[in-house]
Each structure stands twice: as C-alpha cells, then as structure tokens.
Design a protein around this nucleic acid. Structure first.
Length: 569
RNA sequence: UGCCCCAUGGUGUAAUGGUAACACACCGGUUUUUGGUACCGUUUUUCCAGGUUCGAGUCCUGGUGGGGCAACCA
C-alpha cells in the first residue's frame, strides 16, 4: 500500500527510539522471550450486524498495523454466533470498507460459524470433564440466581446433574428436541465469584433461526464468550486485541482455553475511540437512519466509513488520524478537529485546485473586449509541481463570490473587493473597482471593474499591490453544479452524554445546506464520483457518488480550508 | 459498599527510577497570486497525602476522581 506523503515509518522499531504504545511494548517483550517463536498474528473480528464506523477504523489500524509492523499476519473473522442479527449484506459492506481503507487480511478470511462443529466438540469435552451442565431453568430464574456484584449467586438445581445425562440432553438440544429457551448449556465455575462473568456463564442457547451461512444446520449457537477465545486459539492468534469493556471477560477467555488445553491466545484490551460532536453507538446511528434524519448509513455526515468515503475522506487520512490518536487504556474523547486536520493535511498535498463560485454575482470587466475569451494557465497544485498546469478561460464577464464584495463596513482588515479597492483575480489580472448595481432590496447584483493589462499573472509589471486574491469563473464557459455544505451533525460536544436528554435534541439544524446554481469551471463538469478537489479558497470537495450524473456533478464539501481570517465580513 | 481498569497542558499520546516531550487546538509573527500551505515564536502539564530512593510522572500504601462488570447480545 502506498501512503503518499504520509510516511509513518513502520521501520526503525526494532530497539529504536520510536514511540511505543503499551501493546507494542507487550509484543516486544513477548518476542524478546520468544513467545510463539516471536510470531505476531492478530485478527479483526466484527459481528456482521451493521456498518463499520470511525471507531472500528481504530481497531482495524491497530490490528492490521501491528501485523504489518512485525511482519506477521492478520485475519478477518466475522463473529457470527447470533443468527437473528447477522446478514451477508453486512459481510459484504465490511469487506468493502476494509478494502477501501487499503488493508488486506493476509492471514485469511474466517467465520466463527466455520467452527460450530469444533466448538460443539469442545462443549462435549467440558461436559465430560464435569465442567459444564445443562440447565433447564428459565432465563429469569438464572438471572435471579446470578446474585449481584455484592452478593454471591446461588447454584442451579441442575448444577450437579450426571455427566451422562448432560451429554444426552446437550445432544438432544442440538437435535432440536427442546424448545427455544427451555434449556441452556452452562460452564460450571463459581457462583460466588467476584467477577460476574465467572458465575456459571452460558455456553450455548437454543435458537431456531436461519443462519446467514449455516442455514438451518444448527439450532444451538455458542455465546460470545464460548466462541471468541477458542476461535482465536484455532486460528493461532497470538495477540487478541479488543476494547476495554472486555477486560472482565478475560478470566473467562483464559478459563476456557486452559480447561480445553488449546493454543493459548492472549487477550489485551485498549480504549476505544470516542469523538466529540459525534455518536458512535450502532443503535443510535440506526435511529438517525430510520427516522430519516440522514440520507442512509452512507450519509456524508455519518461517522461510518461509507459516510466518510462519500463525504470525501481519503483512506490515507483516516489511517493517519488513527495513528495520531494513539493506543492506550485511558478513556478518551478525541477532538473531531484532529480528523479534519488529517484530511486537510492529505488533501492539501494531493488534491487538484479548481475554481468554483458557490454564491455567484456577476463581475463585468468593462475595459476587456466584448466577446473575447482568452485561455490562461493555472497551476493544478502548488504543493506538487509535477501536476503541471491547465488552461482556464477568462473574459469580460465573470462570476465571483457574493461575499467577496461589500460596500459597507470596509476597514483595513478587509482584503477583498470594495469601492476604491483593487484585487487580484487568481491566475489572471488585477482589477480595480469602478461601480456596482443593486436590486430594489439593495443586494449587489453586478460589480464593474477595470483590469490592468500589465498585471497578468506571471508577468506582472504593473507595480500595483493587491492584498486580496479572489477566485472566479468565466460566465460563458461556466457550468452549473449543486454543492452540498456540511457541518457537524450535532451542536453539542457530547450529544449522548446528557442524562435525561435524548441525543436527538442536540441535532444541528444547519448540518446540511444545499446550494443550487453554483458556477464551476469547465474541468469540474467532468468530475468523476468520488474524485476530490480543492475549490480555491473554499475547501475540499468530492463529487457525490450517489447524486452526481454524467456532466452534472453534485459536490460534497468534505471540509473547509482552515480559516485564518478572524475578521467579520 | 464487591471485583477489574484508568489518572501527564484545552484534547490526545510519549518519557520504562535520571533535563516532562510530540501532535492537534489556541494566541502572535514572517512568507504567500488560496485570509490556504510553509516557517518561526508565545501560553498551558504529572489528581491528593504519605512512604522507598542520592533522585519518583514512573515503585509502595492510603485516599479522591473517572470508566467498566449482574443480556439465552457481541
């Protein structure tokens, strides 16, 4: 994978001075001790029940990044143990997002459901060793006996059932002879354990549901805890990385592996990503989609990878962001500004500059010949001379941005056009104000200027100093375009962090503005969906992959340029 | 009134017993045909109390604060 302009340098880690996060330090120590012959094998284990978001991107970068750094392998494993929530459509979407990010699962693609038979065998093994039993109580009764964090639980009346009977019943469960909810298989550990997860956790439950891969072959399904560690183990995963909330599951993870005597994968936990002004919960994102607050899971305001992609985020910028966020065990809230910075940083280096006028007013260059259009060269990307130049049309009538001209309140901080002022037209000439027209309401409709022929870009001998530079589009060659301006979806830094207040109360009513009749230069008319540009002085824009039509692009503003102008218009 | 994890500028992340640093943000300046970029600079940090040590952000004890844990979810 090429990371143009974003060389992070996975090299130089071996005993070097590079900054090491705690997981890298653990791996360094493991390799020092020659654990698993120094092998590093990670996995990314999404449940195929929804779309990936920026939070997943962090986990992805950690797992794939570590494998790459140590020359190891990484598996993609779909953790599909709950058929009622999972679907092949999600499998495909997850694959697509991963590929877009630029990662390859070089260890292979797996499904927990591939291991159902093996897992069943493991369960039988634990029954035989007296470590598991079939419980015929209701879910309510089992919950009631679980106790509480401060009170020990009580043993199930079925806890000491004979091994043979357990074996028979479990077999019957598999054969579909028992109703859903009528019995479960539980591990026999310790009903008084301080860790609630060790109080005889469920291993299997009955579900007469069709699985997206195994169909109706099974009617009993393993619980997460009885599947995850063993799946890691089966795949020879050396470092099983997950988020902090699984910390209390680790003793159980290890208990199963030890009782089963299988490959000792080790689980390590790190803090998940949190972003301010953003919600990450699948359930809440679903509400935004269902209540049509947004235009689907890939709405450009969504924190999903598909949304970021449509918005105009580059995979490089997302990876760079994840690298900068770091890995630790402390709960964090990252400023969404860091994500925007990563995008600007990458696009500044790579995006072609083009001119677009979002809210046009007409500028007439009164001393320019009527009907004459000249082609002027302009630099495609000043950050990258290799991109060369292209010619853009210039003529007597141009569109400029309405906010680039004003009559009232002009002071020394105002660099743009105003009565008595001169400005540079980007890649063209310096022009000086002559007069302007307004409508009945007093809105400026037209600005008249004179250009200085000897101020031509690249060969300016005029000696005139213009403080401001404006972007513009020549009228007869301008194309119409729709431009969508996005702001953050929520006004509040922590929309789901207010007790008693629904996150929907903090929606930003200004999060989407649709502008029609924007004027763009010719090259933008043929913008391809997904292609990203810098609109000079405005920001980075991507042609929308959903609404753009041949020759009629719709542009999404991915992010504005940093605004160093503190003055008020 | 249980168990587990965590605590470093505004936000993140390093420093592995020896000068608290890097990035983002903020503020100021230089350059600029993008009020962008680049470059320079300013401001701002080890939760508290004891202890060990020549020396503690780091180790120990006790507090305080935050997070997690009692789905037939993952």
């Amino acid at each position: 994978m090429e990371h143009a302009g974003l060389d992070k340098g996975a090299e130089g880690n071996e005993g070097g001075t590079a900054r090491r996060n705690f997981i890298q330090q653990i791996i360094d120590a493991d390799r020092e001790a020659n654990v698993h012959e120094g092998r590093v094998h990670t996995r990314f284990p999404p449940e195929p029940n929804g779309f990936l978001h920026i939070g997943h991107a962090k986990a992805i970068c950690v797992n794939f990044g570590l494998a790459a750094e140590y020359g190891g392998q990484v598996n993609l494993r779909f953790d599909d143990t709950n058929p009622v929530k999972e679907d092949t459509a999600y499998v495909n979407a997850i694959r697509e997002d991963l590929a877009w990010l630029g990662f390859e699962w070089n260890g292979g693609e797996f499904y927990t459901s591939d291991y159902f038979e093996t897992l069943y065998g493991y369960a039988v093994q634990l029954i035989k060793s007296g470590d598991a039993y079939v419980d015929e109580q209701s879910a309510e009764d089992i919950a009631a006996q679980k106790g509480s964090p401060t009170e020990p639980g009580k043993a199930s009346p079925f806890r000491d059932r004979a091994v043979e009977e357990n074996l028979t019943l479990f077999q019957e469960m598999r054969e579909g002879k028992h109703a859903e909810g009528s019995m479960v298989l539980r591990a026999k550990i310790d009903m008084a354990h301080a860790n609630m997860h060790m109080r005889d956790p469920l291993m299997y439950r009955i579900k007469f549901a069709t699985h997206h891969r195994t169909g109706d072959a099974w009617c009993i399904y393993p619980m997460y805890d009885f599947a995850h560690g063993q799946s890691d183990s089966i795949e020879g995963i050396t470092h099983s990385l997950c988020s902090l909330e699984f910390e209390v599951h680790r003793p159980l993870y290890e208990w199963y592996i030890e009782k089963l005597g299988i490959f000792p994968s080790k689980q390590r936990e790190f803090a998940r990503l949190n972003l301010n002004y953003t919600i990450m919960s699948k359930r809440k994102l679903l509400r935004l989609v269902e209540e049509e607050v947004v235009d689907g899971w890939d709405d450009p305001r969504m924190p999903t990878l598909s949304g970021l992609r449509r918005r105009g985020y580059s995979p490089e910028s997302v990876r760079e962001f994840c690298d900068r966020v770091g890995v630790a065990k402390r709960n964090n809230v990252i400023d969404v500004g860091l994500l925007e910075f990563a995008l600007r940083d990458h696009l500044n280096a790579t995006a072609t500059r083009a001119m677009a006028v979002l809210r046009p007013i007409k500028m007439v260059v009164i001393n320019y010949p009527e009907g004459q259009v000249d082609m002027l060269p302009t630099v495609n990307n000043p950050e990258n001379p290799d991109e060369g130049t292209r010619d853009i049309p210039f003529g007597r009538e141009l569109y400029i941005e309405a906010e680039d001209f004003k009559v009232e309140g002009v002071n020394k901080k105002w660099f743009r056009l105003a009565p008595g002022r001169s400005v540079r037209l980007k890649s063209a000439y310096i022009v000086t104000y002559v007069d302007h027209k307004t409508d009945e309401a007093g809105n400026v409709t037209e600005v008249h200027v004179e250009y200085h022929p000897n101020s031509k870009s690249g060969s300016d001998t005029s000696g005139i100093k213009a403080k401001g530079t404006l972007h513009w589009v020549e009228c007869t060659h301008a194309h119409d375009a729709e431009v969508r301006l996005y702001e953050r979806l929520f006004n509040d830094p922590s929309p789901d962090g207010h007790k008693g207040q629904d996150f929907m109360e903090f929606l930003n009513p200004e999060s989407l503005k649709i502008l029609q009749g924007c004027k763009v230069e010719p090259v933008l008319a043929s913008a391809q969906p997904g292609q990203t540009w810098q609109f000079t002085r405005l920001g980075y824009f991507a042609a929308d992959s959903k609404y753009s039509q041949e020759g009629k692009p719709v542009f999404n503003r991915a992010v504005t340029l940093k605004d160093g102008w503190k003055g008020k218009g």
